[in-house]
Design a binder for these strands. Structure first.
Lengths: 87, 87
DNA sequence: GATTATGCTAACTATAGTATGTGGCCTGCT
DNA sequence: AGCAGGCCACATACTATAGTTAGCATAATC
């Protein structure tokens, strides 16, 4: 269930609060889902993906707007294609 | 034809040259393909996606490592899902 | 020539990603 | 009870760069 399949602006946040964008939330949840399915800790995934260990947590908590190169690294570490990562 | 479907490291670049990562190259080409299919100029796509016009050119030339939020903006502006953008 | 579209340069602000360290929770063992 | 290990969240601070801006150059078409 991806943002593109939801109404736009389905999550309302006052401007004064730190916004958690839909796409980041869903991406983070998907990463966590696949990671735990693979029986990996955040640290193991971080090592395998070649990113910092704290960064995985930030991604899963939708705290960072991850870049395409990092998306690919995560997909590869999780053993899936990028499209699978967004399904 | 995506990097995940190719051998890793298929593009060899000397370290002294600025590296054009596979995923960025393919993403840029895909964006340009869909943009031109839609009959849009870079400026029109930029306006529709809510990014700067020069940035579209940089993306298409694989000069920038685009973030997830910008990927979503581009997908929406091109009228496709993110998975379609990576097919 | 003019117009449209794109490429390029330089500089800027905001933030992605890194790094280190601490603290809390849970589980299992003695 | 205490202890150790595993796991994760969080705070702080840093470097590299994403994305923006303004202006000029180039290319293609009429």
């Amino acid at each position: 269930m991806w943002p593109a399949q939801l109404n736009r602006g389905s999550i309302a946040h006052p401007e004064k609060m730190k916004s958690k964008t839909d796409i980041l939330v869903h991406f983070g949840l998907r990463v966590r889902e696949l990671r735990t399915q693979n029986g990996m800790s955040q640290e193991q995934l971080a090592f395998k993906a070649g990113v910092h260990r704290t960064y995985i947590g930030m991604i899963e908590r939708a705290e960072k707007n991850v870049t395409l190169i990092s998306i690919e690294k995560l997909a590869n570490a999780l053993g899936v294609s990028i499209t699978t990562l967004f399904e």
